[in-house]
């Protein structure tokens, strides 16, 4: 099964693959498993240490004592389930179909460079999602429309700021503030305004790192799990700061339940 690829070139591919997977929000055990699977396909033994910002991996050839180590930085990528699914499938494809390294690179680049969902489409879906969230918490139709418009405003701002590569803490504070400020108009009307205000910032909650963090901890990767949770909690804190700016502004109107 082993072709004439050098240990170094295999290591380079696996390092790039694992770093991309970690960067786009795949939980640690899957990254390790997929990397080992690819290593298996090329008749090498892969051992990996995963940290929050780096991956260290060592490849050992099965029938000799050649060893190669690689350290790679994990890039900060937007979360992508598409990449998660496709790259996991790629590891099985390599394993089952004896792909050469050149073919593997070709498929990998095709997956990584595929266009993501149109941002306008995402914007509208997120608006509807947050409005339905408002309904789930017991908001009425009027609150839902307010939350819809507040979310669209905030999410649009987030997309624009991300395109300009602002610091993501700043993005979260500003977007939470603007969205909740839009939603606080609900206090002018007779509606379920507390629920409207509460749900208006929920589109920002970093649910994927939060859940990934718990999954990592449950599966024994406590270090990366905690790192993910801490990162997610920092973002939650930023949302709280943005929201509190609004709350302080409108605090005289707040209804205490």
């Amino acid at each position: 099964m082993r072709r004439d690829e050098s240990l170094q070139s295999i290591a380079k591919f696996i390092a790039e693959y694992a770093a991309h997977m970690m960067g786009c929000g795949v939980h640690t055990s899957r990254v390790v498993r997929s990397a080992k699977r690819i290593g298996d396909a090329y008749e090498t033994d892969v051992n990996i240490s995963v940290f929050q910002r780096n991956i260290i991996l060592t490849l050992k050839e099965n029938n000799s004592d050649k060893i190669h180590s690689e350290v790679v930085d994990i890039p900060a990528l937007p979360i992508s389930f598409e990449h998660n699914a496709e790259l996991s499938a790629l590891s099985w494809n390599i394993y089952d179909n004896n792909l050469s390294l050149a073919d593997a690179w070709k498929l990998y680049n095709k997956i990584v460079n595929a266009p993501s969902i149109d941002s306008l489409f995402v914007l509208i879906l997120v608006g509807f999602a947050n409005a339905s969230f408002c309904k789930l918490f017991g908001g009425d139709w009027f609150s839902m429309t307010i939350v819809f418009s507040a979310t669209i405003t905030g999410m649009f701002l987030k997309q624009q700021m991300q395109r300009k590569h602002f610091n993501h803490y700043i993005i979260f504070i500003v977007c939470a503030f603007i969205a909740s400020l839009c939603a606080s108009t609900a206090y002018l009307f007779d509606t379920t305004s507390e629920i409207a205000l509460a749900t208006s910032v929920l589109y920002l909650v970093p649910g994927v790192p939060l859940i990934n963090g718990v999954i990592d901890i449950v599966e024994g990767y406590t270090l990366t799990g905690f790192a993910r949770l801490v990162n997610a909690l920092m973002l939650v804190l930023c949302i709280a700061i943005g929201l509190s700016l609004t709350l302080v502004l409108v605090k005289d109107n707040l209804i205490i339940n």
Partner: peptide, 28 residues
């Protein structure tokens, strides 16, 4: 992979109202 399906499906269950009340009560 399972996580691709279940993480988005879990997101609506995150208790946002309670999370909001944490911030609210902290300010108050």
């Amino acid at each position: 992979p399972m996580t691709v399906l279940y993480i988005p499906a879990l997101l609506p269950m995150i208790p946002g109202k309670f999370a909001y009340r944490i911030v609210f009560s902290l300010i108050m």
